[in-house]
Design a protein around this nucleic acid. Structure first.
Lengths: 134, 134
DNA sequence: GTATGTAATGTTATACTATTACACATATCG
DNA sequence: CGATATGTGTAATAGTATAACATTACATAC
């Protein structure tokens, strides 16, 4: 198991901001929102994010260069997590599908590849933002 | 079908560089390699990349902020493409798996989400870079 | 309590990635 | 020709991320 130390002040602040945000936040968004808490430099944010990601509490959305708090609704295992990101409203849904995970693992495994992390990000339109069909 | 115009000079140059590269290249890598061809500004690269990606000739690796030529070995359809990226040597394998594609489509579809594009990137160690086990 | 090692922090500067804005050119089509 | 659309060149700027260094906080051992 990963060592589960208590979060430091900076780490807690960053995590709280992400949890209370409506959607993904960039590191600089976070910095701006934490200036009133004494944050002054990007590195303070990036360092906190690094630890939070290592502990699985935060995910980085590669295609947005932004970060979200982990929803925690999926199996706590080392399954690959996927995201559906609405290009219109920015809403993000997090999910994990074991079949997807297994198939991807199998494909790379057959070639001797050892998977460490994965980014699975689907971009499109959420229901609310889709053009009406009726 | 997507209009298949002939590539312009800049677009061809960028595509050729990507095809002949050993691995993914960043936009600025490309710029440096194309200075002898008259390239002077990042925008010349980014504009060519944009068109090449729209035509499916180039993929962007979100987790690297880099670009690769499409291998063309997978079904030419609108299937989601996946990548295995070695964190050690930078080698990239491109592949498409219909099951993965279908499962992801199903998951988001069930929630009324309309998928437009996807990024599936697995990071880890390729066979050659994995620690020996024998 | 003091020494020591480790992790976290604060700060500045810098590197890397990407886009905006504007001017000019070229091609196609009526 | 005039009108629209696309491509180009250039400069300036915005946005994302890390390197390097000095300092502080805290746990543990002596």
């Amino acid at each position: 198991m990963t060592e589960a130390r208590k979060l430091t002040r900076n780490q807690s602040l960053v995590l709280e901001k992400l949890k209370s945000a409506a959607g993904p936040l960039s590191a600089y968004d976070l910095l701006d929102r934490l200036r009133s808490n004494g944050f002054r430099a990007p590195l303070q944010v990036y360092r906190a994010l690094k630890v939070l990601m290592e502990r699985g509490k935060v995910h980085r959305l590669e295609s947005l260069s932004a970060f979200v708090a982990c929803c925690g609704n999926h199996g706590h295992d080392a399954v690959m997590v996927a995201f559906a990101i609405c290009d219109e409203c920015g809403q993000v849904s997090e999910f994990a599908d074991e079949t997807v995970s297994d198939r991807l693992q199998q494909w790379v495994g057959r070639r001797g590849f050892t998977a460490a992390t994965a980014a699975i990000e689907i971009r499109g339109l959420c229901e609310a933002c889709s053009p009406q069909t009726n």
